[in-house]
């Protein structure tokens, strides 16, 4: 070890070597979270389903948003990726700091910690995704050949969430405000993402914001795979891919530079 920065090649090799550690930590986090609860793993599905149900009732009965497919399925198709994204980014931002007990005692690439959160929450989302598919059948939308789009949809979701998590977790070590900034951002972010409404029903004022939102493309890709995409969705996917790559590049720069000295500030 010489100097504080790591080479990208070395960082990559260390991360690859840590893959079983990441899997192990993720499994531990996931099961420990529900171990002491009487309903156990049911909460992993129950909570997002419940939240989506409340939103569905409010926005179909009270506010009345008209959509082609049944509103419940329309909403849930977008809520699955959104809840994964917001939960994961919120937790991953503090991952390095929260695990300081581990990180200040033994070396492994610190990127493993936010990536663990990314993987942990994926377990729960796999189940909610199954619920989504069940709902599409139950509401008569059916499952078409477009369902294969779920593969790139999940890939894009994980890539975007992962690279933003890496970026946020590294920044949070130096600026502990990041946690609150993330929380605050999520409140706004939810409303500029077409979860509750279709993409083509965005009022002119916030339209550019919605179209440049990295999550819009992800959400639309999930809709395309299940209930059918909103008109004008393809460019938003390109925007999401661009965001993922930009965040990944930024995250790599930060982790390359600070991986070996994060511990100094823990």
């Amino acid at each position: 070890m010489e100097g504080e920065a790591t080479t990208l090649r070395r960082l990559g090799a260390e991360l690859w070597a840590s893959r079983s550690l990441i899997a192990m930590l993720a499994r531990k986090d996931f099961f420990v979270r529900y171990r002491r609860a009487s309903f156990g793993l049911l909460w992993a599905v129950g909570l997002p389903v419940f939240q989506a149900a409340v939103l569905a009732v409010v926005f179909s009965q009270v506010v009345r948003i008209e959509t082609g497919p049944p509103y419940v399925v329309f909403l849930f198709a977008a809520y699955v990726p959104w809840s994964y994204f917001s939960l994961t980014l919120g937790a991953a931002a503090t991952a390095i700091v929260d695990n300081s007990g581990l990180a200040s005692k033994i070396y492994f690439p610190r990127a493993a910690l936010p990536l663990t959160t990314v993987l942990t929450n994926l377990y729960g989302s796999a189940v909610t995704l199954a619920v989504l598919l069940g709902l599409t059948v139950a509401y008569g939308v059916g499952i078409g050949p477009a369902v294969v789009l779920l593969v790139p949809a999940v890939a894009l979701l994980v890539m975007l969430t992962g690279s933003m998590s890496l970026l946020a977790s590294a920044t949070h070590v130096y600026f502990r405000d990041v946690r609150y900034v993330t929380q605050a951002a999520m409140t706004v972010w939810f409303y500029v993402t077409p979860v509750l409404y279709p993409l083509d029903r965005v009022p002119g004022g916030i339209a550019p914001l919605v179209k440049l939102n990295p999550m819009t493309g992800v959400v639309e890709l999930f809709r395309a795979a299940t209930v059918g995409a909103d008109p004008g969705w393809l460019p938003t996917v390109a925007v999401s891919v661009a965001w993922s790559l930009a965040c990944l590049a930024g995250a790599l720069v930060l982790h390359r530079r600070y991986d070996r000295v994060f511990a100094d500030l823990l």
Binding site: M1, E2, G3, E4, A103, S104, K105, I106, Y107, R260, V261, A263, D264
Partner: peptide, 9 residues
């Protein structure tokens, strides 16, 4: 800590 690789010199 340097020996353990936790922090870089």
């Amino acid at each position: 800590q340097m020996l353990a690789g936790v922090t870089a010199p």
